[in-house]
């Protein structure tokens, strides 16, 4: 797995076409070259001085810190040579450059995305942000306008309906009043009937009595008949008046035509 990961990372770097892989290990190569050069032109005093200085520095270092920790303390690259698997990752290399700058030996070209990554980013943007700003502004305006319009329409509807409300209220009151008067009339009629029956017998009779009940039924029938007749008469009269008025109208029209 580890190897596979490394290989993948390595391949991805290769596609970046960046010479950093060499530059990371350049130190050894450069040293050899330098040594070659040094052998050609020997500067013994300088070399001796240098090695002495190094020796002194080595002896001075009594911290017993590990190399990476010491490097970290002096704000140097803690691992100049890759040691762990993640030292080859793109993220680590970028961070190395970000922290230690040119001294890290990383080519800053790796900071930017390569072509494929760029294409992917562009595609992502096209999916995540499909609309342009003016389009979105127009859309938001349209939506707002729509909601306002719907609210306005609804309010107008309500105002229209509210105009009718007084009439509707009056209707309801009238209906209640009619019902009450009718109920009152019916009650009065019944009472009158009972009174009539009592008058017929001439003395106070118990209303639960059989005789009383029979008489009451009879009287009721009579009353109903009378009411029916009265209704019939009223209707006939009504029709007659209507007919008469129609006749008068037709006559008038005829007169007008002539």
């Amino acid at each position: 797995m580890l190897r596979f990961n490394l290989f993948r990372k390595f391949v991805s770097f290769h596609s970046r076409n960046v010479a950093f892989a060499n530059s990371r290990n350049k130190s050894t190569a450069v040293d050899i070259e330098k040594l070659d050069q040094d052998t050609t032109s020997i500067d013994v005093v300088d070399d001796e001085l240098k090695s002495r200085e190094e020796e002194i520095q080595r002896k001075r270092n009594k911290s017993r810190l590990k190399e990476p920790d010491r490097n970290f303390l002096f704000e140097k690259d803690p691992y100049p040579e890759p040691t762990r698997w993640h030292h080859g990752t793109l993220k680590y290399m970028r961070r190395l450059y970000g922290r230690y700058g040119e001294a890290s030996g990383v080519d800053p070209a790796i900071c930017w995305p390569v072509k494929e990554e760029l294409e992917e980013a562009i595609e992502y943007e096209q999916v995540a942000y499909p609309f342009t700003i003016p389009h979105m502004i127009a859309e938001a305006k349209r939506k707002r306008h729509e909601t306002e319009e719907s609210v306005k329409l609804r309010q107008e509807e309500i105002v229209k309906k509210m105009e009718k409300i007084e009439q509707m209220k009056q209707d309801v009151y009238n209906r209640i009043k009619n019902k009450e008067t009718e109920a009152k009339a019916a009650k009065e009629r019944k009472e009158r009937l009972i009174e009539e029956v009592r008058m017929h017998f001439g003395y106070t009779v118990d209303p639960r009595d059989e005789k009383f009940k029979e008489m009451l039924e009879k009287k009721e029938k009579e009353q109903k008949k009378a009411m029916k007749e009265a209704k019939k008469k009223a209707r006939e009269e009504n029709i007659m008046t209507k007919l008469l008025s129609k006749k008068a109208d037709t006559v008038k029209k005829d007169v007008n035509k002539q």
């Binding site: 190395l96 970000g98 502004i137």
Partner: peptide, 23 residues
Amino acid sequence: FFERGVPIPKRMMPPPDAIEYYS
């Protein structure tokens, strides 16, 4: 952020429900 060694990203546009405010 600068130590991450990545280029400064683009600021993306506001979402549809915020565009009205910011315009």
